[in-house]
Amino acid sequence: MREFGYQKAADVSVAVALLDADPEARFLGGGTNLVDLMKTGVERPARLVDVRELPLNRIETTEDGGLRIGATVTNTDLAVHPEVRRRYPALAQAVLAGASGQLRNMATVGGNLLQRTRCGYFTDVTKACNKRVPGSGCPAIEGEHHNHAILGTSQHCVATHPSDMGVALTAFDAVVSYETVDGPGELPLADFYLPVSDTPHRETALPPGALITGVTLPPTPVAANSRYRKVRERASYAFAIGSIAAALDIQDGVVRDVRLAFGAVASRPWRARVAEQMLTGAPAEAVSFAAAADAELAAARPLAHNAYKVRLMHNLVAAVLTEMVQEVAR
């Protein structure tokens, strides 16, 4: 592999200055994705700026009753945090559904949001990929794509975003904080990932050289009754083929508030706003759930070998919401 420099950043301003000075440098968090990609030649940074020990590892309640999660909080620490488990259980479940214990001990919140797709064409430098080499083509569209995206795709890329955590954060309207040499900034997660369009290599709206410093969850009462279900091709240690973060508030048999986000169906965690709108105020019953799922999935553009995902997501919406209704009833 390519030789690279390594530097541990003492504080946030040093970190962003180092990256600003070297366009070939990359931030290193837990390294659970970046180091793999360096081994396979997908990423070839000249220098790694290690940010894992920056003082961004706290989870704090915000003044308005939300939660601020530091960027270097590990997946493990996030998943076991009492406030996360109590107020945003789907987030804890999503994190625990990902990777393995060893990886969760290393992986960080900031790195999780910036991890790259696991598309087999992207991770193999001998193959074409518009995300890795713009303009080289997307062989997945005619090739192996049974676990590729069905929503928000373009003719240039059909890769999925692999994060579980991001799906729950998306459902709960998280806001990403970052720092650049020009000062701090914020991006709602809804605007954080760019549409695929003809620029699949441009994945986020972060300014160049920006360091994610944290994620803020607004107070979201409905999130206290939430869950995450992940379907994958083996029982553990695999990326999703379809997942769902759902939060539900029912009163008198009617949906008062609902949050739905899908994983493994798009280039980003997919907020199911169409379904949410249809469900809000609707009877909390199977027919509504199915109709809402179908409405959301009407935009799906499946390929030859991933059409099953439409049925999978339909079933997941119906199954998870029905299960939540039944639990409320008990």
Binding site: G120, Y121, D124, T126, K127, P139, E142, G143, E144
Partner: peptide, 8 residues
């Protein structure tokens, strides 16, 4: 991957 005749 049939197009390249290699595995993906």
């Amino acid at each position: 991957d049939e197009a390249t005749g290699s595995l993906v």
